[in-house]
Nucleic acid binder design. Structure first.
Length: 562
RNA sequence: GCGGUCGUAGCUCAAUUGGAUAGAGCAACAGGCUACGAACUUGUAGGUUGGGGGUUCGAGUCCCUCCGACCGCGCCA
C-alpha cells in the first residue's frame, strides 16, 4: 500500500496506524475465535461513505466463528474497543458495516496532504529512482505512408505510460521499429519509381500492386527536384532500390514529425534492415540454435514455438536463405529482453495472432515473465452519427495529422487515452472538436482555467500567505473530498504503471475536476475571513498542481484561460 | 474449424484483478447564478452484467457450455 502521508505534523502516520490496527485485530481474532493467523489487509473502498480504508478480515473468520460476517465484524470492533482503546484514537472512526470494517482517517491527515503537495510541488507524486529498466515499443509501422488514426491511439497510450513510468522512478526507453525490409518497401520503391518516370513519360505504367496515394507522387517529385533525371539512366533495379531508400527516409522523417507534433518523444527508431546488416538477426537465430530450439525442414529453419504454447512452429529463415520478419523480431526482442527488466509491446489490432509467438520467444530465450504484449484495439471514426469510411486498399485513410488538424492534439490525446487499451474505440470527430459540456477534455481544462481565474482575482498577498497557511479550517465535506482525491495521485500513477492502464488517468483527471467544481460551488473563497480564505486558496493551488501534472502525463495542455 | 480479444444503463465506457447497494459521462426529466468563470452544480429516472450451469462466506471478474461481434490462422510485414 502507498503510505498516504509520510510526515504529518501531529505525528500520526497512516501506514503505521493501520499496521497497529491490523495487529490489534489479529489479537482480537485470536482471543475470540482461537484463530491466530488471520490475514488482515486493507483496501480502499469504492464508495466514499465506507471511509478511506476497509478490511475484510471478518470474512476470513466466518468458518472458525460459525457466525455471519456482520456479527464477526461487530464482535471484532467491540473487542478492540475494550482491549486496545488507543487504537480508536488513531482514527476518526472505525465502523463495522455489512461484514467489512471501515476506517475513516482524521481530517488532519488530509490537511497535511494538501500542505505536502504545496511544499513538494510536482515531486509529491514522484517515486524515488528504482533502477528498474522498462522498454516500451509502440506505433511501429512500415515506412510506406503517413501515420494513421489507429497509431495515434497507440502513441497516446504508449507516451502516457512512458511519462507515468518516469514519474514513478523507472528508467524508460521508448522505441519504434521501422519495418524497412521485404516486399512492402520493395513495392514502395516501385511505386515511387513509376511516379518518377511518369514525370517525363505520362504513359509509363504504374504497378498493379503499387500504392496509389498522392503522397507517393509528392515524394517522386521531391526526388526529381533533388536528383534530376539520374535514375532514368541507371538500371531499373538500381533505380527502384534508390527510390525505395529515398521514400523510406522521407516517410520515416514524416512519421517522426507527426509523432513530435503529437508530443511523443522516442529514444530509438530502430531500423529492421540495420538489424540484418549488423549481423544481429543471424546471431539471435544462432542463439536459438544453440539452445536446441530450431530444426531444418524443406530447406527452411524453424523455431520450435509449439514447445512454448504457440500454435505452430515458426519459420525463421526461408528456404531461399532470407530471414523472415519474425526472424528479425527474434533479434530485436532478444536485445530488448537483455537490456530491460520489463519489455512492453503495444501492437495494432491486426496483430492478435502475434501475441503467442512473442510470448513463446521470450520464454525460449529465458525471460518468460519479462514480456508484456498489449493490443491497441481498433478505432472507428464517426462524424456525428455517420461512420467515416476508411480503407487502406482504396487509399482512403485518415492520417493522424488530419485528425489533429480537425480536433487538436489535446482532444485527440485525451480521447485516445480515455479507454482501456483492449477496448475498441469509437471516436466522434464532431464531439472531439466541439467546445461543449459533452466534451470531457474541456471539463478538465475548465477546472484548471477556473482556478487560474480565482488566483488572478485574488490579492497576490493572499496567494503568498496561502502557501504557508494553516489548513485546520479545511473540514467541509467538499474540502475533505477534494483533498482526499488529490492525495490519490501517487497511488493512481503507480497503478497505471503496474497494470498498464493509462485510461485511469483521464478518469482521475475528471474526478479531480469534478471534486473541485463541487468544492467551488459549495465553498466561497475570496469573500471569506483571512484564515479560511488562505486555506481555501491553498487548496486551489494544490488542485492546480495536480491537474497540471495529470494533464502533462496525458500530453494535454493546461490553459490559463479558455 | 482452431486461436486471440471482447459482450455491462438508450449511447460511449468504468469497476483498484474475488468484495459492500455494479459506477461515471452524454442523452431525458425537475431544480440552482445580486458573490471568485453556469464550459459549472443538485436531484430523479434508467440494469436478470448476452443465456444457462458450476466453484464459495461472496462472481461482471474464476471454470464449463451455448449465442453473438471483431481480429488473426503465409517460407507477407
Amino acid at each position: 500500500m502507498e503510505p498516504i502521508a509520510k510526515d504529518c505534523e501531529h505525528g500520526i502516520l497512516p501506514a503505521d496506524a493501520l499496521r497497529s490496527f491490523a495487529e490489534a485485530l489479529r489479537a482480537s481474532a485470536a482471543a475470540l475465535y482461537q484463530e491466530g493467523s488471520v490475514e488482515v489487509s486493507f483496501e480502499t473502498p469504492r464508495r466514499p461513505e465506507f471511509g478511506e480504508f476497509a478490511t475484510n478480515a471478518a470474512f476470513a473468520l466466518v468458518r472458525a466463528a460459525r457466525r455471519g460476517p456482520q456479527d464477526v465484524a461487530r464482535a471484532l470492533v467491540d473487542d478492540l474497543a475494550a482491549r486496545a482503546p488507543y487504537i480508536e484514537k488513531l482514527f476518526f472512526s472505525i465502523e463495522p458495516i455489512a461484514g467489512f470494517i471501515n476506517v475513516r482517517l482524521r481530517p488532519e491527515i488530509w490537511q497535511a496532504e494538501v500542505a505536502r503537495i504545496l511544499r513538494d510541488g510536482e515531486s509529491f507524486a514522484r517515486a524515488s529512482h528504482r533502477g528498474a529498466r522498462i522498454s516500451l515499443e509502440f506505433g511501429s509501422a512500415n515506412p510506406t505512408g503517413p501515420l494513421v488514426v489507429v497509431q495515434g491511439r497507440a502513441l497516446s497510450i504508449g507516451d502516457t505510460l512512458a511519462r507515468t513510468m518516469r514519474l514513478r522512478g523507472y528508467d524508460v526507453f521508448v522505441e519504434w521499429i521501422i519495418n524497412d525490409t521485404g516486399a512492402q518497401v520493395e513495392t514502395l520503391g516501385r511505386s515511387v519509381y513509376a511516379r518518377y518516370r511518369q514525370l517525363d513519360d505520362p504513359a509509363y505504367p504504374f504497378p498493379d500492386d503499387g500504392y496509389p496515394a498522392d503522397y507517393i507522387a509528392v515524394i517522386a517529385r521531391a526526388l526529381r527536384d533533388r536528383e534530376g533525371d539520374r535514375y532514368v539512366k541507371v538500371s531499373e533495379e538500381e533505380a527502384i532500390a534508390a527510390c525505395g531508400d529515398f521514400a523510406r527516409d522521407e516517410l520515416v522523417a514524416q512519421q517522426q514529425e507527426s509523432a513530435k507534433r503529437f508530443r511523443v518523444q522516442y529514444d530509438l527508431w530502430q531500423s529492421e534492415r540495420e538489424l540484418h546488416e549488423s549481423g544481429r538477426v543471424a546471431a539471435a537465430i544462432e542463439r536459438l540454435r544453440e539452445l536446441g530450439l530450431t530444426y531444418e525442414e524443406g530447406g527452411a529453419t524453424f523455431f520450435r514455438a509449439t514447445q512454448f504454447d504457440d500454435d505452430k512452429d515458426r519459420v525463421l529463415i526461408r528456404a531461399d536463405g532470407r530471414p523472415t520478419y519474425y526472424g528479425a523480431d527474434v533479434a530485436y526482442h532478444y536485445e530488448k529482453l537483455r537490456r530491460a527488466d520489463r519489455v512492453i509491446d503495444i501492437l495494432g489490432p491486426d496483430h492478435h495472432g502475434y501475441i503467442g509467438r512473442l510470448r513463446g520467444l521470450a520464454a525460449a530465450l529465458g525471460f518468460p515473465e519479462h514480456l508484456e504484449v498489449l493490443i491497441s484495439q481498433q478505432v472507428t471514426l464517426m462524424r456525428g452519427s455517420e461512420q467515416v469510411a476508411m480503407s487502406k486498399r482504396a487509399g482512403q485513410v485518415v492520417t493522424l495529422d488530419e485528425l489533429v488538424d480537425e480536433v487538436g492534439v489535446d482532444a485527440a490525446r485525451f480521447f485516445f487515452a480515455m479507454l482501456a487499451t483492449d477496448t475498441p474505440l469509437t471516436f466522434d470527430l464532431q464531439l472531439a472538436a466541439e467546445q461543449s459540456n459533452e466534451n470531457p477534455v474541456y471539463y478538465v481544462q475548465y477546472g484548471y482555467a477556473r482556478i487560474a481565474s480565482v488566483l488572478r482575482k485574488a490579492d497576490p498577498a493572499d496567494v503568498a500567505s496561502a502557501r504557508g497557511a494553516n489548513l485546520r479550517t479545511l473540514v467541509h465535506d467538499a474540502e475533505i473530498a477534494l483533498a482526499r482525491r488529490l492525495a490519490e495521485l501517487p497511488a493512481v500513477a503507480q497503478n497505471v504503471v503496474d497494470q498498464l492502464a493509462s485510461h485511469r488517468l483521464p478518469r482521475y483527471a475528471r474526478d479531480v475536476a469534478s471534486d473541485f467544481h463541487q468544492f467551488y460551488t459549495e465553498c466561497r473563497i475570496l469573500a471569506e475571513e483571512p484564515s479560511v480564505r488562505h486555506a481555501r486558496l491553498a487548496l486551489c493551488l494544490a488542485t492546480q498542481r495536480v491537474l497540471a501534472l495529470v494533464l502533462d502525463l496525458l500530453g494535454v495542455s493546461a490553459p490559463e484561460t479558455m
